[in-house]
Amino acid sequence: MHLSVRSGLGSTRPSAPASTCARRARCSRRCVRPTSRPRAAADLLTQRSPLSVAATVEAMRRAAGMDSVHEVLAQDMVLARGLIEHGDFVEGVRAQLVDKDRQPMWSQASFDEVSGADVARLFEG
């Protein structure tokens, strides 16, 4: 499954100097270019389980066509069970909480390795 989290998210240019930032007068925190936030989000997603990210995107697509919160929550329950049974959840817990090495070994190394069939299997109850 092709899932690009990097395309079209802008550049990582440095922040504007405080003296040239028009928003500086309105905010007390450091001014950050709008393009840095999407880049940071994309970088964070690439550290997560590719299968889990792809499944989350698919869940949001499916939820957009649902008629009630009950349907969405039912889907989320099925997906949660699928993600726990798959193994990446357990690997994430191991890397974060047990060994604390912060080096998970995901079942798929990249988004390109995730197939539509892998994602669809997670939604089977």
Rank of each mutant, 00 (worst) to 15 (best):
G8Y: 06
D88E: 08
P104R: 02
V98H: 08
C27F: 13
T20A: 10
A55L: 06
V5K: 04
V53I: 14
L51A: 01
A95W: 07
V78L: 10
G10Y: 08
F89S: 05
P14H: 09
A63T: 09
T20D: 12
S28G: 08
V90M: 12
A41I: 14
A74D: 13
T46K: 12
P50D: 05
M1F: 04
L73Q: 11
G10D: 09
V78E: 04
T46C: 15
A117P: 01
V32S: 03
V57P: 02
R26S: 12
R6C: 07
G10A: 09
R39A: 14
R121V: 00
E113G: 08
E85Y: 11
A54Q: 01
R33K: 15
R39F: 04
M77P: 01
D118M: 04
E91C: 07
K100L: 00
A25P: 07
R13D: 13
Q75N: 06
V32Q: 08
T35W: 15
R6V: 08
G116R: 01
R6K: 12
D67Q: 11
M77K: 13
A59W: 03
L73H: 06
A109K: 12
G87W: 07
L83P: 00
F89W: 14
T12N: 15
R13V: 09
R23Q: 14
A25M: 08
L44M: 15
G92T: 05
S36C: 14
W106M: 02
A95R: 02
T46S: 14
R26L: 12
V32D: 00
F89P: 06
R48Y: 14
C27S: 13
D99I: 07
T12G: 15
T20Y: 01
D67S: 12
S68G: 03
S28V: 07
D43Y: 06
L44Y: 15
G116S: 03
G65P: 00
F123I: 10
D67H: 06
S15H: 12
A55V: 08
P17D: 10
C27E: 15
L73C: 06
S49Y: 09
R29S: 13
M1D: 01
A117F: 05
V78Q: 03
L73E: 11
S28W: 05
R37L: 15
R30D: 11
T12H: 13
M105R: 12
I84E: 11
A40D: 13
